[in-house]
């Protein structure tokens, strides 16, 4: 297993897409910081009544959707780059045990996303704290930095689950285009579509989308549909479904 993980890790390190995705995450974070700086500068010159109406300096609502897409794409590329080039057949001659290969790939995808996700979400937490300085709520997102930790952890979890979902889609569809289109549907179309559902449906369906599970997992939503435990269970369901369908495709179908 260690050898297979070492091999998969080397694969991730030696393709350009990994670095492009990391660079994109960095760029989106920079944009998030810049827009927060501008917002805080605006707040400083606003009237007292306008100050009350400001949103918080937390940049994650702006940054996370982009990064989520990057995470999903990263997961998908782990398999589609092999199926697309035919490399998978070379890989499977060197690692013919497909379950082993699938597990090693999933662990590498999850591991790198957890690490990147934690660095990013804590950088956003720290960044918002630094930029908001000692200004009061509502521009100040958290009473203290420690109060923002559950939210940062929850975001990192959701990013990782998204990467696994992308990985499962890559395994199932074997094409980068197919996986990315489906991922776009899940991340960007479904949440919007949910708002068009009848009132009784739109809230519960919306609550189940990957974008909305993070705040519920952190317990940051007033009057939530799902408790943190409920949100964790739904996220677990995403992981099980993605890995189950992906494993079935990789293990059972001809390479």
């Amino acid at each position: 297993m260690t050898d297979t993980i070492a091999s998969e890790w080397w694969k991730v390190r030696t393709v350009r897409s990994t670095y492009w995705l990391l660079a994109t995450v960095g760029a989106v974070f920079a944009v998030g910081c810049l827009s927060t700086v501008l917002m805080v500068a605006d707040w400083d010159t606003a009237s007292p009544s306008a100050k009350e109406a400001f949103p918080s300096a937390d940049m994650s609502p702006l940054v996370l959707p982009f990064v989520q897409f990057c995470a999903g794409a990263f997961g998908a590329f782990a398999l589609t780059s092999e199926y697309g080039s035919g490399m998978i057949r070379t890989t499977l001659t060197t690692v013919p045990r497909r379950g082993l290969l699938f597990t090693a790939k999933a662990l590498v995808v999850a591991g790198l996303t957890v690490a990147t996700g934690l660095v990013l979400t804590f950088a956003m937490l720290g960044g918002a704290g630094v930029i908001a300085g000692d200004r009061p709520a509502p521009i100040q997102p958290w009473p203290s930095l420690a109060d923002g930790v559950p939210s940062a952890l929850a975001s990192a979890v959701v990013l990782t689950v998204t990467a696994i979902v992308g990985f499962g889609l890559g395994a199932l569809l074997r094409s980068a285009a197919g996986a990315l289109v489906t991922l776009t549907g899940l991340l960007f179309v479904l949440p919007v579509a949910a708002t068009f559902l009848p009132a009784d449906w739109s809230r519960p369906v919306g609550a189940l989308t990957l974008n909305n599970l993070g705040p519920q997992l952190a317990g940051e939503v007033g009057d939530p549909v799902l408790s943190p435990v409920g949100a964790a269970l739904v996220l677990g369901g995403y992981v099980l479904l993605a890995l189950g369908a992906g494993a079935f495709s990789v293990l059972r179908r001809d390479a």
């Binding site: 050898d3 030696t14 897409s17 080039s85 035919g86 890989t91 690692v95």
Partner: peptide, 26 residues
């Protein structure tokens, strides 16, 4: 050891890295 399809490689990797990916798995 098998050579099935010479094109079945990821073009973005260098020759050495391609082989290293395979070698490390074993």
């Amino acid at each position: 050891g098998a050579l099935l399809d010479a094109g079945a490689v990821h073009g973005g990797r260098t020759a050495a890295n391609h082989l290293l990916c395979l070698a490390r798995s074993n």
